[in-house]
C-alpha cells in the first residue's frame, strides 16, 4: 500500500508545478462557463416549458463541470504509458514487484486530482459571488451534499478505470490512436460533457444508462443541485459502485492476460 501512496504523492506534487497553465485554464474555463450559461439561458428564455432541468440546476451543472474539468476529462492520457507499451519498455515495469494496473491507476488518479486542486477552488469560490443569474448556489441540503461528495469520488474512479481499459487495450493493437478517439468522442457525448444528459431525447437518455459513462460527471453534478435525490440518488450511487467493480475487474483481468502473454513470449 505504501508504494502506491508514494507514487500518488510524487505524481501529485509534480502536477502542482504547472501553475501558469492552471491560471490560464481557470481564465479559459470562466469564459467558457459564462458563454455556456448564456447559451442555455437563450433556450430557457425562448421556451422555459421545454427546459428539462431547473435554471439554477443548469448553472450549477455548468460551473461544476468547468471546476472539475480536469477530474473527468476523457481526452487526457499519460502519453509515456502508451510509449512504454509501444517501445517495449513496459517489460521493465512488468518485472517489478508491483501491479502495473495499480501503479498506473494511482498515477492517473494523482494527475487528475492535482490538476483539479489548482483549478477547482478558485472557480468555485468566485462563482459563489456572481450575480444571481450566474451564481453557483449551495447544495440544497446536507444529504445532497454528502451524496455529492461520495459520488464525485466514485465518478472519478469510473473515469480512471475506464481509461485503464484503453491503456491495457494498447497492448493488443499497434495503433491505439483510433480506439482512443472513438472512446473519447463517444464518451464525451454519453458522459454529458457535450450537453447534459437530461437534454437528450428520452429514448437515448434511457439507453445512455446502459453505459458506464452516464455514471461519471452526470451523477455528482446533478446530485449537488438536488436534481437527483432520494431513491434516485441511492440508485445512482449503487450504479456507480456496480460499474467500478465491473470495470476494475475487467481491467485486472486484462492485466493478468497481458502478464501471462509477456512471460510466455519471454519478454
Amino acid at each position: 500500500m505504501r508504494k502506491y501512496s508514494t507514487i500518488f504523492k510524487i505524481k501529485f506534487l509534480a502536477g502542482l508545478q504547472y501553475r501558469t497553465a492552471a491560471w490560464a485554464g481557470i481564465m479559459t474555463q470562466f469564459v467558457w462557463g459564462f458563454l455556456e450559461i448564456k447559451m442555455f439561458q437563450a433556450f430557457y428564455q425562448t421556451e422555459p416549458q421545454s427546459f428539462p432541468m431547473t435554471y439554477s440546476g443548469i448553472v450549477t451543472y455548468v460551473w461544476l463541470q468547468q471546476a472539475f474539468l480536469s477530474l473527468y476529462m476523457l481526452w487526457f492520457w499519460e502519453n509515456d504509458l502508451f510509449e512504454a507499451i509501444q517501445n517495449g519498455n513496459v517489460a521493465y515495469e512488468l518485472v517489478r514487484p508491483v501491479s502495473i494496473y495499480n501503479t498506473w491507476f494511482v498515477r492517473n488518479l494523482a494527475t487528475r486530482v492535482s490538476k483539479t486542486c489548482l483549478r477547482a477552488l478558485p472557480i468555485l469560490v468566485i462563482t459563489f459571488f456572481l450575480p444571481p443569474n450566474y451564481r453557483l448556489t449551495f447544495p440544497s441540503n446536507s444529504t445532497q451534499f454528502l451524496g455529492f461528495l461520495l459520488s464525485i469520488v466514485l465518478a472519478l474512479l469510473i473515469v480512471v478505470s475506464l481509461s485503464m481499459l484503453i491503456y491495457f487495450w494498447a497492448f493488443y493493437t499497434i495503433q491505439s490512436l483510433g480506439l482512443r478517439m472513438i472512446f473519447q468522442t463517444l464518451g464525451d457525448l454519453l458522459t454529458g460533457a457535450v450537453i447534459p444528459l437530461p437534454f437528450f431525447p428520452t429514448l437515448l437518455q434511457k439507453m445512455s444508462l446502459f453505459f458506464p459513462f452516464a455514471f461519471a460527471q452526470n451523477i455528482p453534478f446533478r446530485v449537488y443541485s438536488g436534481e437527483i435525490s432520494g431513491i434516485a440518488m441511492i440508485r445512482s450511487i449503487q450504479g456507480q459502485i456496480f460499474w467500478i467493480i465491473i470495470l476494475v475487474g475487467f481491467g485486472k483481468w486484462l492485466e493478468f492476460r497481458v502478464k501471462n502473454r509477456m512471460t510466455i513470449q519471454g519478454g
Binding site: E47, I182, I195
Partner: peptide
C-alpha cells in the same frame, strides 16, 4: 468526430426546443 459531437449537441437541443431566440 469531435465536430460531429457538437453537431449532435445542437441536434438534441432542437429535438426539445423548436427555436432559440
Amino acid at each position: 468526430l469531435v465536430s460531429c459531437n457538437v453537431f449532435i449537441g445542437i441536434y438534441f437541443m432542437f429535438q426539445r426546443f423548436s427555436t432559440v431566440k
